[in-house]
């Protein structure tokens, strides 16, 4: 699970730079939450492109998490990128005033998709490619909103577990306060990922690493001494969230079908 942060940084910076060049972008845009992943992404993007070519959007819901906004501003100031604060409360409230709910997950999803819509709008306004900030842990267990925070142009962090992002953050000099805070999806005050998921990131990542990277079976993990309940829970989360990692299935009727046997590379003629 250990990485060489200097090497990984070099790879990610080159990747960001080259992908932008391939698709004729000079600028990148990302949502900055004040959490670890987007902070790391901001550090990497400014390294790759220069701070003037990175735009960070801080998109709070009213005054719910003032400290997160402050932390996001600290990061933006540290890396020197352009920054814009956009309050999503008016848009989100406009909707929920018509279709009210008390369900925090529904609210959280709506907020994530509102942020996505703003990112895509600013992507077009600014001709800036959207950098995704979902890590491998989240992607594998589906801890993200489909067409919300999972949506992006490229994802430079998607093959790094949360614990590996922490190693990267240490090396990049992300402020200690951000590195030490408990990860949260920001669904309600006091919420933490680890409580909601029911496992610590250390446990989660080591189970995922064994199942995914080392291709071991659940039985093997359990015989190694992992808690069967936790192993099965992680497996279930992976299994149930495949739809978030894929384009939706297209009913195949013709002899050549998008997604089935019409197979061009993403970097087609680049």
């Amino acid at each position: 699970m250990k990485i060489n942060p200097e090497y990984v940084t070099r790879l990610i910076s080159t990747f960001i730079k080259e992908e932008l060049a391939k698709f004729d972008f000079r600028k990148a845009i990302l949502g900055l939450s004040g959490g670890l992943d987007s902070s790391v992404c901001a550090f990497l993007a400014t390294r790759a492109l220069g701070s003037h070519n990175v735009l960070a959007l801080i998109m709070p819901y009213g005054k719910t998490f003032p400290e997160e906004v402050e932390d996001a501003q600290t990061v933006a100031a540290l890396v020197g990128c352009r920054v814009l604060i956009i309050d999503i409360q008016p848009m989100v409230e406009a909707y929920f005033s018509i279709y009210p709910t008390d369900d925090p997950v529904l609210k959280g999803n709506k907020m994530a998709r509102e942020r996505m819509a703003i990112l895509y709008d600013f992507s077009a306004r600014e001709k800036a490619l959207i950098l995704g900030t979902s890590n491998k842990t989240e992607l594998l267990i589906g801890y993200g909103t489909i067409h919300g925070d999972l949506a992006c142009g490229i994802n430079p962090l998607g093959d790094l577990y949360k614990t590996q992002i922490r190693q990267l953050a240490d090396w990049l000099g992300v402020p200690e306060k951000i590195r030490k805070k408990k990860p949260t999806a920001g669904l309600w005050p006091g919420q933490t990922d680890e409580e909601e998921i029911g496992l610590s990131y250390d446990e989660l990542d080591s189970i995922l690493y064994e199942l995914v990277d080392l291709r071991k079976s659940r039985l093997e993990l359990i015989s190694q001494g992992y808690d069967p309940q936790k192993v099965n829970r992680v497996w279930e989360m992976m299994r149930r969230s495949e739809f978030k990692r894929r384009m939706p299935p297209i009913l195949k009727l013709s002899s050549r079908t998008v997604g089935h046997d019409f197979l061009y590379p993403y970097d087609w003629d680049r």
């Binding site: 080159t14 990747f15 080259e18 992908e19 590379p265 993403y266 970097d267």
Partner: peptide, 8 residues
């Protein structure tokens, strides 16, 4: 060297 479809 280089990247194609996310592969380095």
């Amino acid at each position: 060297v280089g990247f194609e479809d996310g592969v380095v």
